[in-house]
C-alpha cells in the first residue's frame, strides 16, 4: 500500500501485511512507524526509542 510521509508529504510504500510498530526508512531520511489509528493504517515519525542493551 502507498501511504504519505508525515514529514515530507512524499509517497511511502508499505507492505500490505505491515503490523503496527513496523518501521519504514523513508528516502527523506526519517524512520517512520506504522500505526493503527482507529482502523486506519498511518505513519508517524519514530520516537521514544532507546539503545538496546538487554542482558
Amino acid at each position: 500500500m502507498m501511504l504519505k510521509c508525515p514529514i515530507c508529504g512524499g509517497s511511502v510504500e508499505v507492505p500490505d501485511d505491515a503490523l503496527p510498530g513496523e518501521l519504514v526508512d523513508h528516502d527523506c531520511g526519517v524512520t517512520l512507524e506504522v500505526v493503527n489509528d482507529g482502523g486506519t493504517i498511518k505513519l508517524r515519525p519514530l520516537e521514544g526509542v532507546r539503545e538496546d542493551w538487554g542482558e
Binding site: 507492505p15 513496523e22 521514544g48 526509542v49 532507546r50 539503545e51 538496546d52 542493551w53 538487554g54 542482558e55
Partner: peptide, 24 residues
C-alpha cells in the same frame, strides 16, 4: 526504563515494541 526498543521480528522486519523491564 527503556520505554520502547527496536527489534527485527520473525519476518525479518524492523519493529518497535514496548521495552519491558530493561533499563539503561
Amino acid at each position: 526504563r527503556k520505554k520502547r526498543i527496536v527489534i527485527v521480528d520473525e519476518r525479518g522486519r524492523k519493529r518497535v515494541i514496548d521495552g519491558g523491564f530493561t533499563g539503561k
